[in-house]
Structures are given as C-alpha cells and as structure tokens.
Design a protein around this nucleic acid. Structure first.
Lengths: 189, 189
DNA sequence: AGCATAACCAAGCAAGCGCTAGTGTAAACA
DNA sequence: TGTTTACACTAGCGCTTGCTTGGTTATGCT
C-alpha cells in the first residue's frame, strides 16, 4: 500500500488542493472528486487523511534533500560557489515542487506526533547540510557571525520567497540566489 | 459591537487557541468554553467566526506598526541605528504579541476576500516603512542591492524566527537584531 | 480454469460543525 | 419609573465531516 503510481498521483493532487484550500478545508470528497473516484476509495491508498498530508510533505522534503546534494556535487569546491549552489537549489525546488513545500511550511502543525517525528529527521538532515556549507564559508572568512544563526536567517529569507516571488517575473532563481549571497558576503565585492 | 473590553478579551483568547489548534480546528464551542460562556453568546460580540480571525490579525498588525513607528522616533537618525531599531522592534512585537503574529503568518489564507483587502493595507503600510529605512541605508552606502529585495529578505529572516527562537534562551531580541544587521552591513565592521 | 490482488463503488453512521431564534436579566440611563 | 443596552442563556436546525462496511469489477499470474 505504501507506494504505487496511483498513490503518487493522489499525493500530487492532494498537494495542490492543500495549497488552494488548506488541509482542514480540503475534504476527502473533494480530493476524490478531483481524481474521478469516490471518497471511500481513497482509503484503499491511505490509512487516513493524516497519512495523505504526511506523504505530501515527505515527498517534497526528499526531493529538496536530493537536489541540494546534487547541486553540491556539481558545484565548484570553493565556499562561495557552494553557498550559491545551495541557495539556488533551494529556490528551484521551491518552484518545481512548490505545492509540496507550501504545504510543508504552512500545514506542518497539522501533523500528528508520529508523522512529525518521522519528518523531523528529514528536515534536520537538510538543515545540517546548510550548516555545513555555512560553517565552511565562516571558516574561510567569507562571512561572519554564528553558524546556526546565519543558516536560520538565510533559510528564513529563502522560504519567505514563496510569499512574493513571481516565477514569470523578470528575475530567475539563479539571480535571486546571487543577490542573497551578495547581501551577506561583504568580501565578494 | 466593534470595540468592548469583553471583545478584546475574546480576541486575545482566540489568538491563543488559533495558534494551538489552527483556525479551522478551533470551534466556536471551544472558544466559548474557554471563556466560560456558551457558544451562542459569542455571536453577540462577533458577526461570525471569520470576524474573530480578522480581529486577531488586525490587532497584531496595528501593534506592530505602532511599535515600529515609536522605535523609529526614539532612534538616532543615522541609517544603521534606524535599521537596528526596526529589526529590534519587529522581534519584540513577535514576542509580546506572539500569538497574533503567528496567526497572521499562518492563517492569512483563511481570511475571506474583504477582510484580506482591509488588512492588506495595514500590512503594506508596515512594509513601506521597512522599504523606506532600507532605502535610506542603501543611499548612505551602508548596504548594497535592491531596496525591495533586501526588505523582503530581511523580513523573511525575521519572521522565520518564530519557528526556532526561544525567548528563555541566551539571546535577547536586541542581540538577535544586531547580529542580523551585522550580517548584511559589510562596512560596519 | 482457478485464484490473487488492486482498485473501486454505494450507502450510510456517528459525530461535530457554524449559526439562529427567541428569551431572560441586571445594570445604566432618561 | 420606564426604557434602553450589554451580555448571556436554551435549544436546536441543517449540513458536513472522516471514515467504515460489504460487496463488485478488471487484470494478470499460475
């Protein structure tokens, strides 16, 4: 029951509805109708509504982690390039997996205790990656301050973009990432 | 009906419940019971549940705006001090009015169209204040980049603090504000 | 042919939801 | 003294919710 094409399709659709309506206002009947099935049939794929939420967030976070790792591998090894690669990867996932990430940001508190514990590990792994890259930049004298503080400030700035960033606008994620890194790296000017 | 001590008390309590449970999961019966009255009596103070949400967010935003203006008046006139004053004021409101602000951040999308339009003006006024202060700092050569971009990055970093900041921890809002401003002002070191 | 499995449906239960209508009461005001 | 005002109550209506139950259909394996 844990992984089928059908389930994946449902998860994708659920993410979209959760963004449009919010988790609590999205009824199982809505999701079913959008999928062209009856509401009862949903429970063949998911134990309960909670599990749908968990699946949505899990997939988004897994993707973010994978993309960040790829970006680091493809990046030049100097600290500034790595910082830039992380920021750019973050912004790009925020776009390609937008629905899942908005759900993760705004509906996290609707998770029950065990789902939250499970997903916390994934999220922590992602944040640890950031702290590593930020730590290297600090050691290299590229930026100054506290490793954890800088990581959190940067992550906050990046996540906030879902509120205002327009992908059809004039700026690419690439440019946005560069401007953010430029803002915090005095020496690079 | 629009402003009484009783209504204010209800608004404060509602903010707390909205944070704990989320807006949709908070029932009028819960709020009434917590207040020691019956659910029907709530509708003497508010037209409907929506209006409670609107009241919560409005009060929080009004306070933030007022405190930011006071902070600017009390600040020294140089751009760096003003930046610092804004950041510090933001963090302090985030603490003293924490519930209202968390609701504003996470339940904004549950507002109906007219409430949203009404509150957007308040929020825009607050953001305009930031853009003015950031703009001055740019003109003074204290920081570099785009006025709107920098404002949004900074606001994002600040708002994200509600996710991790522990008021009983070792750092004061004052220190946090200083570290953030230091991060983006290369020349100040 | 016989069987397993995945996917679905029709029908509905029990609980909970926001909100309304009509009434009571005590203090404040004229 | 009579009237208004603020606040609360009782009792429920009409509807929606997540989820269950018991059964059906399509597909593909052995």
């Amino acid at each position: 029951m844990n992984d089928s094409p059908r389930r994946r399709e449902l998860t994708r659709l659920a993410a979209q509805l959760f963004v449009q309506e919010g988790f609590d206002r999205t009824t199982v009947r809505m999701l079913a109708q959008e999928m062209g099935i009856k509401s009862g049939s949903l429970f063949h794929h998911f134990r309960d509504k909670q599990e749908i939420l968990c699946a949505v967030i899990e997939e988004g976070t897994q993707n973010a982690l994978a993309i960040a790792r790829e970006a680091l591998e493809a990046s030049e090894p100097n600290p500034e390039a790595r910082l830039h690669a992380m920021a750019r990867a973050h912004l790009e996932t925020l776009l390609t997996d937008r629905n899942a990430h908005v759900v993760a940001l705004y509906e996290w508190r609707r998770l029950d205790a065990e789902s939250r514990a499970h997903l916390s590990h994934l999220r922590d792994a992602y944040e640890a990656l950031w702290q590593e890259v930020v730590g290297d930049a600090l050691d290299a004298g590229l930026i100054h301050g506290d490793k954890f503080l800088v990581s959190r400030f940067v992550l906050g700035a990046l996540n906030w973009t879902v509120r205002w960033y327009d992908p059809d606008g004039s700026r690419t994620p690439e440019e946005l990432a560069r401007e953010l890194i430029a803002m915090i790296t005095p020496s690079s000017r």
